[in-house]
Design a protein around this nucleic acid. Structure first.
Lengths: 342, 342
DNA sequence: GTGAAAGCGCTAACAC
DNA sequence: GTGTTAGCGCTTTCAC
C-alpha cells in the first residue's frame, strides 16, 4: 500500500492530464465542465491511488477551513458531552469538522484557545462557556470571526445565541414547590457573572413575588461554581444562618447533589425534611441515591441548533442576529415531597 | 480592531524588513540568528498588529499539522471524557491540537473518520475504540500514519498501545468475591471482539480455576454491548436459565447497573441476594442508589500516556513498539456483600 | 473541455 | 544578520 501522500499531481501525471482537470473532476461543483468520461477516469484513478484531499492546502487556498472551534468550560461536567454530540452530529453532516477546547471557566484561557484556533483558520466559533461580560467573545467580534454562544450567553447583543428559557424553568420549579405546600424556599444561586446564574436568580425573585411569597434575603446563598463542592459549601452557609426552610432550589444538579450531601451530614433528610430541586437533568440522575427532581434541558438539540446557526451565519453574514430560546421541562422525581408543615 | 487577517508579510512591510526575518524572529528556534533588537521589534509589531500564525500554511509547508486525531466510540459513555481530558491536557502542553470523532463502535465509520482526518493531515492517531481485528487500524499502518490504541487494543502487534491489566483487575474481583464466600460467580461478558471483553473473559476462567472453582458454562452470558440495556438483557437471559448464583461480575459499570435493575425487577436484591461488581468506576458511581463495587482504572493517565507516546513515536519513528500496562484497583462499595449461603 | 500559471502564508535552503 | 527565492497542494482566472 501507499506510504507516501497521494496528491492531485500524482493523479494528473498518472493520467497524463493537468492538475486542474483532476481538481475539477473531483469537485462536484465543477465536474460538469468536463466530459463524463473524463470525470469517471479521474475518479477511478483517485480511488485506486487512495487519494484524500489535503484540507490544509484547500483551506489555505480558499481561506475557509471547514472547521468550527468549540469552547466548553469543562469536559468532565456531564452537561456538555450531549451538547458536543449535537454539535458534532450536525457539523459532520455538513462536512465540517469541529475542534474542541476547554476553558476551565477561565476567560483568559478561553481567549488563548480562541487565538490558537484562529491560527488554525477556524471559520467560526461555538462558545458554550461564556460569561455575561466576556472579552473572549469580544475578541471574536472585533476580529470579525463569526461566533455563537450556546447556553451561557453574553449581555450585549453582539453574537447569535441559543439559550434555554430560564424564566420558564424557574416558574415550573417554583410552582411545583408551591403545590407541594412549600413557602420557605431557599435558593443556592449560581455565579452571577454567568447568564444562567443571573437569569435564574432574577426569575426566582419574580416568581416568588408573582405568587405572593415574600422574598427573604437570608434564604439566598451564592454557590461559587457549578460544582458539587460549591453546593456543599453554600449549603453549609445556609444552614449556619439558622433560618427555617423546607425546600432548596439549586443552581444545577451538581450543586443539588452537594446540597443533599451537606444536609444529610447535618441530619437533615431529603425529601423528608427538605425538598431539593436541581437543573439540567444530567445523565443517570434517575439512578442516584436520591433521584433528583430537576429541569430537563434539550442538550442535544442545543448543540445541533448552535451548529446549524453558525453555518447559516457563515453563509449569510448579514443575516439578523439569531436568538433562539429552547424550552426546559420539569422532571419530577423523588427529591421533592409535600411540605411537612403544610 | 483589525478585521483582516494579519500575515507575516503585513508585519514585514510595516517594519520594512523581509518576511523571512519576521518568520525567523517569531520562531524561538531561529530567533537567535537575529539581533536581539530586531527580534524585539518584530515581536512588538506582531503583538501590536494582532498576528496569529496561520497553522494551515505552516502545516502545508512543513508537512506536519501539529494535530492528533482522536477516535472514541462514544462521547456519551462516561468513561471517555476523562481519557479525552488526559489526552488534551498533554497535547496542549506540547502545542498540539486534537481533533475528535466518534465511531459509534462501527469500524466502517471509524475508517471514514480516519480518512477525513488524514485529509486534515493529522500527524498521528489515538484510537480508543479499536476492535481486536480492526481494518481501520490496518489502514493507519498501511498508510504509515503513526497510531496508538488506548484501552481496547488490537491482537496483532502493529501499533503502540496503552492497556490496563485486565488479568489483575479480574483477580482482584474474584478474590474479593471469594473472600465474601461466593462460589457461584456469574459473568456477564463483554463483546469478545473487543480486547477488554476477551481478556476479562479469559481471566475469569483462569482465576476461577486457579482458585479451585469449577467453571460452570451456564453462569456465563454475553452482553452485546457495553451498555445498561445490554446489561439488562444479559441478566434476563442469565435468570431464565434458572441456575443458582450469588454474585455477578459485569462487563463494566453500565452493564452492572443494567444487571441490578433487571435483578430487582425480578425480586432479586443487590447486595442482599446477589453481589454485583462493575468495571471502570465511572463518575458519580459512589452516589448511585446502589454504590457499585468496581475496578477503578486510571483514565486521565491513560489519556496522558497515550498522548505522550504518540508524540514520542512522531519524533522517533524507529523506536520499538511501546506496550504500556496500567494497573487497575478494586474499589469496594456496597453492591457486594457476604454470601448468604456461606 | 482542458491546460498554464498565479498565488494562498509560510519556511528554509541558498546567497551575500 | 538579513534578503531572495522556491515550493508545500490546492483552486481558479485566463487562455486556447
Amino acid at each position: 500500500m501507499s506510504a507516501k501522500k497521494v496528491t492531485l499531481r500524482d493523479i494528473a501525471e498518472h493520467l497524463g492530464v493537468n492538475t486542474s482537470t483532476v481538481s475539477r473532476a473531483l469537485n462536484p461543483k465543477t465536474s460538469k465542465m468536463l466530459t463524463a468520461e473524463q470525470v469517471r477516469r479521474v475518479q477511478e484513478a483517485a480511488d485506486a491511488l487512495g487519494y484524500v484531499q489535503n484540507t490544509m492546502a484547500y483551506a489555505l487556498k480558499k481561506g475557509r477551513s471547514m472547521t468550527i472551534g468549540v469552547i466548553i468550560p469543562d469536559l468532565m461536567n456531564p452537561v456538555f458531552p450531549p451538547i458536543l454530540k449535537g454539535i458534532m452530529n450536525y457539523l459532520n453532516r455538513e462536512a465540517y469538522t469541529s475542534i474542541i477546547a476547554y476553558s476551565e471557566n477561565d476567560m483568559e484561557l478561553a481567549l488563548t484557545e480562541i487565538k490558537r484556533m484562529k491560527g488554525r483558520q477556524v471559520d467560526g466559533f461555538i462558545l458554550a462557556g461564556a460569561f455575561r461580560d466576556d472579552f473572549s467573545v469580544d475578541y471574536c467580534v472585533d476580529n470579525n470571526i463569526p461566533a455563537i454562544t450556546v447556553g451561557r450567553s453574553v449581555d450585549k447583543d453582539v453574537v447569535d445565541k441559543i439559550v434555554i428559557d430560564n424564566e420558564s424553568g424557574m416558574q415550573q420549579m417554583v410552582e411545583h414547590l408551591l403545590e407541594l405546600g412549600h413557602r420557605r424556599i431557599a435558593l443556592i444561586a449560581a455565579p452571577q457573572n454567568i447568564s444562567d446564574g443571573y437569569e435564574r436568580y432574577r426569575a426566582y425573585l419574580e416568581q416568588l413575588e408573582s405568587h405572593g411569597i415574600e422574598v427573604d434575603e437570608s434564604l439566598i446563598v451564592q454557590a461559587e461554581a457549578f460544582s458539587q463542592d460549591a453546593g456543599r459549601k453554600a449549603t453549609g452557609e445556609l444552614l449556619s444562618r439558622n433560618v427555617p426552610f423546607s425546600a432548596v432550589i439549586a443552581a444545577n444538579d451538581l450543586v443539588a447533589l452537594g446540597c443533599i450531601e451537606e444536609l444529610e451530614r447535618n441530619g437533615v433528610h431529603c425529601p423528608d425534611d427538605v425538598s431539593v430541586i436541581g437543573f439540567n437533568n444530567m445523565p443517570y440522575l434517575d439512578q442516584f441515591r436520591v433521584p433528583l427532581t430537576t429541569i430537563e434541558i434539550p442538550r442535544l438539540r442545543m448543540g445541533e441548533k448552535a451548529a446549524r446557526v453558525i453555518l447559516e451565519r457563515l453563509k449569510k453574514p448579514e443575516m439578523p442576529l439569531q436568538h433562539i430560546v429552547l424550552e426546559p421541562r420539569l422532571l419530577v422525581r423523588s427529591s421533592t415531597a409535600r411540605c411537612r408543615d403544610a
